[in-house]
């Protein structure tokens, strides 16, 4: 079964890395088809960015950008004021938001999940230039919404991407987010 995911964030938040980590973890979990790529724009720190991921238990041949995702992941809810992140989202699709609020408080017309990734990032000291980096906890929360991507596989992928102490902090943040995501 093919799952298509779009990550929305701001340049520098690590949306592209999030998509790549998901792809690595999905392969480690035994999925045959994994693919992750950025929206091919001009990168600017702070500007809204998009990244895409496809996961399937069969090989993936499709090369176009994702227009009708199964899941959208929003790293920074501030961009929802300027971008319609639910554009193309499948009717039974899910939206995962980085917010301390509960899904029921938001009353969105889609299945909604929330996780306070910013607080998790701060508590785990994942900061770049004093700014919390929320990409790893967001992927941790995301895999709860997916069948077939294991927590241990994601932690392993994170430890490969970030060496030493940074890897441990990120791997822990992944686990905390995985447990704390509100569905």
């Amino acid at each position: 079964m093919l799952k298509e995911i779009i990550f929305y964030g701001r340049g520098g938040q690590g949306a592209v890395t999030a998509a790549n980590l998901l792809a690595s973890a999905a392969l480690k979990s035994g999925n045959k088809g994994v693919q992750a790529f950025p929206f091919f724009g001009a990168e600017r720190r702070g500007a809204p960015v998009k990244a895409f991921a496809r996961i399937s238990n069969e090989e993936i041949f499709l090369r176009s950008q994702i227009r009708e995702p199964d899941i959208v992941v929003v790293l920074d809810t501030g961009i929802m004021d300027v971008i319609d992140v639910t554009q193309g989202l499948k009717e039974n699709g899910t939206i995962l938001l980085n917010t301390p609020r509960n899904p029921s408080e938001l009353s969105l017309p889609y299945k909604t999940a929330t996780v306070d990734a910013t607080t998790i990032a701060i508590e785990n000291e994942i900061l770049v230039g004093g700014i919390p980096v929320v990409n790893t906890p967001m992927v941790g929360a995301l895999i709860r919404l997916l069948d077939g991507v294991k927590l241990e596989a994601l932690q392993e992928a994170v430890m490969e991407r970030f060496k030493g102490r940074a890897g441990e902090k990120n791997a822990n943040a992944v686990k905390v987010a995985y447990e704390k995501v509100k569905l």
Partner: peptide, 11 residues
């Protein structure tokens, strides 16, 4: 192909 392969990760 630029980006479609060059910047896309896959197995």
């Amino acid at each position: 192909d630029a980006f479609i392969l060059s910047h896309t990760v896959e197995p």
